[in-house]
């Protein structure tokens, strides 16, 4: 189980971005972390995967534990070795390398020949397209294929916990559907998933549990089915309006506008 407790993160020594975030990702679960742009979702993932340093950020309070062991003071490489790997926002594949070399980079920490061959086979089964294009330069893949490569690359380290940062971003609905199925497939083989999304509809559709963040705090959490039914969530994150919502009070409208601005 991956646990984040009372996490506080500061960038450049002054910008307080996370203000006491707590949540957990139980083994074998898919947990959704939702919230508008700038809420601090990516920062949470960086704090877990040890990548805050690259951005001059620092955990100033709280802790991250994996099966009870603290990992918030570990470096990125040892966190990957412990089985927690992050797929960065915007795919970030190595554009000039071949598809295969991208996958080999992903398997860097996988010392054991046998298990890295297994991981490779698994990626090939999940993403047959990557096998067909194994020698192509990754930068020339389509957006959807690049996202598959980014996920496949992360799977090469044979992770126990996969951190996904907005995998559906910029993809056509059909591809979002495909990525969604892939996440479910990966999870069904025992990998826990922490899914960060702005596409709340997709995320809540497959998650066991969801958390909603606003300006550095968790403001709501619950089983995803329940969250999906919640009127506020429906309105602000799913863009759906229930019946009888037509006559809003002025206060509600203002509130809505405020939220809307964060969404933009």
């Amino acid at each position: 189980m991956l646990e984040v407790r009372n996490l506080e993160v500061v960038y450049n020594d002054v910008i307080l971005v996370l203000r006491g975030v707590s949540f957990s990702v139980p083994d074998g679960n898919i947990v959704a972390l939702l919230g508008a742009n700038g809420a601090g979702k990516t920062t949470v993932l960086r704090a877990i995967s040890g990548l805050l340093g690259v951005h001059n950020g620092e955990v100033t309070k709280g802790e991250v534990t994996l099966n009870g062991d603290r990992i918030d003071d570990a470096d990125a490489a040892s966190i990957v070795k412990r089985g927690v790997v992050q797929v960065l926002e915007g795919r970030r594949i190595f554009a000039e390398l071949s598809v295969d070399d991208n996958l080999r980079a992903g398997g860097y920490t996988n010392q054991n020949r046998e298990s890295s061959d297994q991981a490779y086979e698994r990626v090939m089964t999940l993403f047959p397209i990557l096998g067909r294009r194994s020698k192509s330069t990754a930068g020339y893949l389509s957006g959807g294929e690049q996202q598959m490569l980014a996920i496949g690359r992360a799977l090469m380290s044979d992770p126990k916990v996969l951190l996904l940062d907005e995998p559906s971003l910029g993809l056509a609905p059909r591809l979002v559907q495909q990525i969604r199925d892939i996440i479910v497939d990966i999870n069904s083989h025992g990998t826990s998933v922490l899914l960060v999304e702005q596409n709340a509809l997709m995320a809540l559709g497959i998650a066991d549990y969801g958390y909603i963040m606003e300006t550095g705090k968790i403001v709501m959490d619950g089983e995803s089915a329940k969250l999906a039914k919640d009127a506020d969530v429906r309105e602000f994150y799913l863009g759906l309006h229930g019946e009888g919502d037509e006559r809003k009070s002025f206060k509600d409208v203002k509130h809505y506008k405020r939220k809307k601005r964060w969404l933009s």
Binding site: S49, G50, L51, V54, A76, A77, I79, V80, K81, V85, Q86, V87, L88, R92, I93, F94, A95, E96, L97, D101, N102, A105, G106, Y108, T109, R153, A154, M156, S157
Partner: peptide
């Protein structure tokens, strides 16, 4: 080669 192209992404791979 990976580090040369994208240091953070390479770090994310361990």
């Amino acid at each position: 080669r990976a580090t040369a192209l994208d240091q953070e992404a390479a770090m994310a791979m361990g």
